[in-house]
Computed example of a mutant assay.
Amino acid sequence: MKELNIDITLCTTMKKKPAFDRLEFGRNFTDHMFIWNYSVEKGWHDPRIVPYQPITLDPAATVFHYGQSVFEGLKAYHTKNEQILLFRPDQNMKRLNRSNDRLCMPQIDEELALSALQQLVSLEREWIPTEEGTSLYIRPYMIATEPYLGVSPSKAYQFMIILSPVGAYYKEGINPVKIAVENDYVRAVAGGTGNAKTAGNYAGSLKASEIAEQNGYSQVLWLDGKEKKYIEEVGSMNIFFKINGEIITPELNGSILEGITRKSIIELLEHWDIRVVERKITMDEIRQASIDGHLEEAFGTGTAAVISPIGEFLWKNEKLIINDGKIGRLSKKLYDTLTGIQYGNITDPFGWTLKL
């Protein structure tokens, strides 16, 4: 793999590390960060690791006005035998470039970006928590920095990586969540930016999520933006159903984000000779499966939770209870297997993990 030659400026005073057994998500950040500049004239230049610090941007920077911003999320795991593992980071870099393409942002050399990520994580390895279920969250992102108010792609960008130690997602065991089906707001539409990991997608989802939480529900189930009948995502995760023994997940249609955990779940199930059907699926079908007693399991998939089992849907004032509100056997097996691979407790037959 290619290696990026990075200028490194070390902190003169290190931060006090938080208690790793009481970590919140995304609240604490390590001592250093990575920055890489881009301009149309120079291309990518001046890669550097510097002390974690505020960034200075012109008030007219394109990112503030026209939203050219993409990001990724992945984790580094500390194994019991003192190794550091990354999980499928190459897939994050590929998806970053797909998002860049959709937002008219410059492509980045995936191998060099991964080299920068590895060097930063290696430098900050003491920030990787060792408690069970904890990890170091890695946030690569790119923003448009040209000071220009014309509606056109920026001619200057910064690619950055910051790191944050995070606690175990399930501190008291995996408990299924309650989900409200969203009938008013939409997350994305085909032809829009739903299949890109861009900041605006998440800003647009906050209102519906806020309403759901006020009504006692953890998140919302998003339906398609055209007919409001086809299931797309749950919160910021992809979704799977087990109906009468069959595993179904919505097909990628241009408005659904191609999740790396989603991809891994599908490949893992197929490795177990369990077929996964990728197709359109409606809430009417889910309701009927629930009435018939065929809706066996439902779960979301994503980087933060890996697997988030669903115990209830609220749709049109009707509650659909799944597996008596308990986690299903397949959901638990998938969670245990995938996290086992990520933490190096289970042999990785796919070559998904990258050792630092």
Rank of each mutant, 00 (worst) to 15 (best):
G225R: 10
K197Y: 00
I265Q: 02
F25E: 08
T30F: 05
V166G: 06
D292V: 09
F34I: 05
R98A: 10
V189A: 15
R279G: 08
K333Y: 05
E41F: 07
A113K: 03
P250W: 10
G259H: 08
E251H: 13
Y157H: 14
G340I: 06
L114R: 12
I291L: 14
I211M: 13
G254V: 07
S255G: 06
T353S: 10
M33V: 03
V189Q: 05
I84V: 15
D324A: 12
R88Y: 05
F25K: 09
L320N: 00
A156K: 13
G293I: 11
G192L: 10
P54E: 06
T249R: 03
K155F: 07
P47K: 04
K333M: 09
E278M: 07
D292P: 03
S154C: 11
S331C: 04
N5F: 07
A76I: 02
F313D: 01
Y137L: 02
K197H: 01
G150N: 07
E126P: 01
I322W: 02
L257W: 05
K42F: 01
N183R: 12
F64C: 10
P309E: 02
M1N: 11
G200H: 10
N97T: 05
G300E: 00
V277Q: 09
V50D: 03
Q53C: 09
K17N: 05
V181Y: 08
G328K: 01
R22G: 01
P165I: 10
I256M: 08
F87D: 00
A208D: 01
M1C: 01
E131I: 12
S209N: 13
T301R: 04
L23E: 00
L23N: 01
E296F: 08
A304N: 07
E312L: 15
K80W: 00
A188V: 03
E270G: 07
S154H: 07
H65Y: 08
L338G: 10
L96D: 00
A203M: 11
K178T: 04
I260C: 03
D284K: 15
V177N: 08
R102I: 09
I286S: 02
E132T: 14
I179N: 04
G293S: 13
T193F: 13
G235C: 12
C104N: 11
E267Y: 02
M142L: 09
D273N: 11
Q342E: 08
I307A: 06
A212K: 07
L320W: 06
I231K: 00
R287W: 09
D284Y: 13
V234Y: 03
D90Q: 14
D292E: 14
K171M: 04
S69C: 14
Y38N: 07
R98N: 13
N5V: 14
G204F: 06
I49N: 08
N244K: 14
L120Y: 08
N253F: 06
L23H: 06
F71L: 09
V40S: 13
R275H: 10
K229R: 15
D46G: 04
N81Y: 03
K280A: 11
G235S: 06
R27E: 11
G204R: 11
A61F: 07
P153R: 02
N317P: 02
I6D: 04
Y202L: 05
D336I: 02
A19E: 13
I266M: 09
W44P: 00
I327T: 12
E131C: 12
G302N: 09
D348Y: 03
I162W: 15
Y66G: 08
